[in-house]
Design a protein around this nucleic acid. Sequence first.
DNA 1: GGCGCCCTAAACACCG
DNA 2: GCGGTGTTTAGGGCGC
Length: 695
Amino acid sequence: MMVESATESIRTTPSSQNGVSSLSSQSDGGGREGGSNCDTNGEISPVDLLHLQQQQALQAARQFILQQATGLNSPSSNELKQSPVQVPVSMAMMTPQMITPQQMQQILSPPQLQALLQQQQALMLQQLQEYYKKQQEQLHLQLLTQQQQAGKQAKEQQQLGNKQLAFQQQLIQMQQLQQQHILNLQRQGLVNLQPGQGAVPIQSLQQAMCPTDLQQLWKDVACVQSTEEAMKHEGLDLTTNSSNTTSYSASKVSPQIPHHPLPNGQNSVHTPKRDRARLFEWISSFTKESSDEHLMPYSKGAHLQSTHSTHEEHTASHPLFGHGECKWPGCEALCEDMGQFIKHLNSEHALDDRSTAQCRVQMQVVQQLEIQLAKESERLQAMMTHLHMRPSEPKPFNQPLNLASSMSLSKRESEGFPEGLPHPPTSAATPITPMRQGPSVISSSSLHGVGPIRRRNSDKFCTPIASELAQNCEFYKNADVRPPFTYASLIRHAILEAPDRQLTLNEIYNWFTRMFAYFRRNTATWKNAVRHNLSLHKCFVRVENVKGAVWTVDEVEYQKRRPPKMTGSPTLVKNMISGLGFGSLNASYQAALAESSLGLLNSSTLMNSTGASLNMLHVGHDDVSSTVEQVNSNGSCSPGLSPQQYGHQIHVKEEPAEMEEDCRPVSLMAAVNQNLSMPGDERDMEEELPTEELE
DNA sequence: GGCGCCCTAAACACCG
DNA sequence: GCGGTGTTTAGGGCGC
């Protein structure tokens, strides 16, 4: 087919030559397409071949990266971008992204990520095909040119035959690699790819790799290139291309490879082993530095640098000699002793273009690895920092509570702001605050806006809804971000925020849409959820008012359902009574405190604003504008709207099973407070505003 | 794995 | 009949 036609062209057209481009000129991003890197003999220049093979290696690397692409969470990097080889195929994918994979992962839902991955894989496949096409065309073009010039001299006919074979070989290799890579990509799931789908940045995949992955990657690279070698050295059986599965071990059975350079002394066949050798070197260094016990099973280099090696003395004497082999990238020549090695070094690796190029490549390899190391180190540091910070998680949650909430509280009190209402100055100072909330507040699901509400956050360890909304109200108003609170807490907040602490269903709807951009869509869903929550939770009391049915909050019921887990916890009792720092409390309790702080904040504010000193629980209310008590279905007194105030029918709900009980032990906190004769709301304040009210 | 909490969806009833 | 409201049930996800 193509090879045959190329062969035919060779026979019928003269060949020619051209100069060898310098390495620098080839690597300066000019791309390979325009390069005519052939030597005067009409062959592809070694440097060109080097580039070609390195590109192929990178293709294999990319292939491996895709295989490893289960996680995309790693900081962005530009390793590939800085690759010594310009690989047009992947340049688009190597472009640094505006967002990190982590951010992408947070922003995108898993299905979106998957779609993105598939999309980019498709793109990559397409680019691969285009690239190989270009390469083939280029090779073919070079072939034709050389044939034309070579044809003028009959004397060179025989030589041309050899060149022809060489080019045929190149073409075959190119085709084989192309097929192999495409097949591999398809095996990796691209068979189902559809046109137009996107993908995950390849750099992200690479960045996600750990050193072990890199080792495997390099191994694959070496394997692929060894395949090339094998093909080259297996003769010129161009009719079969079944050598795609040539294994690494198979390639290693070709020790003569390094000793068969091209006639002009170039190093095309050296390149694969060179890369592999660099891999080994890197593995060795990494293994040595990171963990002496972890020897890479396939890492020959690791063993080469084993401190237990009998050749260690030699290794120590020369970094390029170890285990009886020359460790020059791609060489692996066997040397019996140091003297022989030195001789070999001086003869085979003297200062010439090839060695310079190899050194240059090695420098870039090292540079890339250093970058990778820096990134990995940074990641490690972040991980350690994160893990170290874990025990003190409550800290960031307490702090904003103290500062923001109390400050805005006082302001609201003085300015008559309804408590809980977002105060402009506060929110204005933090227009995009959710970022500072940390992941505990704005989860990935809430970020992309399609996932479920941050369910546990508000309950466990989030900033209280009051301060959260106060500080981020502008954000939630404008950003299509789902608030990290439950429907129940939001409804409660809305109701308590109302001047008279009551809202009609429609007013609740309006509050949701007014406060959260997220709730301006999917109205059917969340409205249904709101109604569901209102009906389901006992804490929401429907009151027939003159203007229709309104919903109020039964704080007692609400608090009842909050911290069931802390009931009976000796630790909590101790902490409670002793008034220790809340950082020592467990997450559940803190979460309960956090979430419910809003209502208590509200209550306290109202109480303060009205100057009422209430004993809701035992005495009864004396100010309906403040937190009022309400006789609930159980006959107990609870803060909320006064039945007298509304003087209408109150629909008593039954909480779901577990909520049902007066006989159920009251929460420990409540019990403690009751023992302390704490008034209802004050009790709540004490419970829920440890950092706000108990400073 | 069980449990609790939550969300979502859906069906149904009531009422203006 | 329609839309809004309220109730209830079911299923599933998630964290403990």
